[in-house]
Nucleic acid binder design. Structure first.
Lengths: 129, 129
DNA sequence: TTCTCATTTTCCTAAATGAGAATATGAATC
DNA sequence: GATTCATATTCTCATTTAGGAAAATGAGAA
């Protein structure tokens, strides 16, 4: 089904690795992941679809929101990929910072996140508008 | 030491995966690997250096020949990568064909291989010269 | 139906990557 | 020392990829 080169390619990008880890133990909606990672929603969406195509994430639509999570009943190769990630990526500084930020994001109503992202679309770095 | 994204990137290319598997259980010189895979020695050499930089292969020079092999005392992350490869890449058709071809290559004197590659440098596909 | 909105897709650009030809390197042999 | 030879590196070109802006999609709300 899923091949090692495809899975390895999905894991070879640090942004994708961060996204996967963010969804390993908890379902996340796209706006939460955009909040975690400082990239456009278009980029996040493309990375998520790469992870999904590799079999590392699955998605579920709920109204206007789409939630991503790790596969709870993975193939053997996917399970081994998860194990590799859990064993050898969690001690990374960026990943640990992400874990902290995710606990903060969990405290915010996703509707608030989405609204913030909507209004900040014209200027992401400075708060001009 | 070696990071998951770097290792995953090395494994994400099928040519590199074939090279790694060819060197998993047996040391191979570059001319044997060029014989296995229909690419220029420049390309093979670059892929090998990528694998080496990721910690997946090590090299040993013996006179004019350079031999590559998997690390016999790997870090935990490298060992897990080897295990992933052994568990989930060996059933691939191309890999199995490689295994057969490698047994044939093992029967040929490397000096013969090198000579053949030297003379065939101008036309790899057809035997015009 | 029309509007709003979260997400995805399309389109484009800039940077990265894979490939081979030509050249360089490092080591044996003459 | 000059030459030969196995491999590595450099250079260039074609293809792929990451990124954002803008348009499209799909679903609830008015």
């Amino acid at each position: 089904m899923f091949t090692l080169p495809t899975i390895a390619h999905a894991l070879s990008d640090t942004t994708r690795l961060r996204l996967l880890i963010a969804c390993l133990d908890k379902e996340r909606c796209v706006c939460q992941l955009v909040e975690l990672i400082d990239l456009s929603n278009a980029s996040i969406s493309k990375h998520l679809s790469t992870l999904k195509a590799a079999g590392l994430l699955e998605s579920r639509r709920e109204g206007r929101w789409v939630h991503y999570r790790a596969n709870p009943n993975p193939d053997s190769i996917i399970a081994d990929a998860y194990a590799l990630v859990r064993s050898h990526a969690m001690e990374d500084d960026q990943i640990q910072a992400d874990q902290i930020k995710l606990t903060e994001i969990d405290c915010i109503d996703p509707t608030e996140l989405a609204k913030k992202q909507r209004t900040a679309s014209c200027c992401t770095t400075n708060d001009c508008c």
